[in-house]
């Protein structure tokens, strides 16, 4: 990035370095949210629909994991992916994939916990009908996830918000390498450490604008879809 440009100028001029940072940040966070959804939604549904010993403990644990500090997750993923760690052979440390892994771990508990709540509420409503229709277990889970899809979008957005906003995990496992693993938040951290506070704040505003756009888009989609399916 040119040294003496404001963030606004960078955006308006379509600065390629800024563009690649934004693109990477979006790809990493969205991939993490999608992977976390594939793990978290079925897990949430499973806990919602089953009763087992220690279920209450599992829910409390899940709610606690929602608040796990990103730095801790970053450190654990770092130790796992390091060449000296158990998964070192994968060679993933300091790559975008490592950031996706860390953010997936960060986001999955949020999506699981919120999905559990949403699906459990819907299950209470649907239980009699689905039982009376003799729907087997996999069908029940599928129906609940499908019919809760608009509420689940909110869970995904909460996860996306956490992923897009965090810096602690991605900076440790990604290394903030220019052109490879530099995202919006790590760029903000870097500009702050270089003392370029106006650029850091400008990047922060860009980040907020992007998160706002994603949320607005999801809202519009949700509204439009709700009108069709109720």
């Amino acid at each position: 990035m040119p040294d003496n440009a404001s963030a606004l100028q960078l955006v308006l001029s379509g600065d390629p370095a800024l563009f690649s940072i934004v693109l990477l940040a979006m790809i990493v966070s969205l991939s993490a949210v999608l992977l976390a959804a594939l793990i978290g939604v079925p897990l949430g549904a499973l806990i919602a629909l089953t009763s087992f010993r220690g279920r209450d403990g599992a829910i409390v644990l899940l709610n606690t994991l929602m608040g796990l500090p990103p730095v801790v997750i970053g450190l654990l993923v770092y130790l796992a992916l390091s060449r000296s760690g158990p998964l070192g052979a994968w060679g993933l440390l300091f790559t975008p994939q490592a950031m996706v892994i860390a953010q997936t771990i960060l986001v999955a508990p949020i999506i699981a916990a919120l999905s559990r709540q949403t699906i459990e509420d819907l299950w209470l409503e649907y239980r009699d009908e689905l039982t009376a229709m003799n729907v087997p277990w996999p069908g029940r889970v599928g129906t609940l996830i499908w019919d809760a899809r608009f509420s689940l979008i909110t869970a995904l957005l909460a996860g996306f918000g956490r992923a897009a906003a965090e810096v602690g995990a991605v900076i440790i496992v990604g290394g903030n390498i220019e052109g490879h693993t530099r995202t919006m938040t790590t760029a903000i951290a870097l500009e702050t450490s270089k003392g370029d506070l106006p650029l850091a704040i400008g990047l922060g505003i860009v980040l907020m604008a992007i998160v706002l756009m994603v949320n607005a888009l999801a809202w519009v989609v949700r509204r439009a879809a709700e009108r069709v399916a109720g």
Partner: peptide, 22 residues
Amino acid sequence: FQRPTMLRRTTSANIRYALRAA
């Protein structure tokens, strides 16, 4: 049921669901 639960789908999709379940 006395207060039947409508699935969050269209009218025809509710029936289609029952047909599939059966």
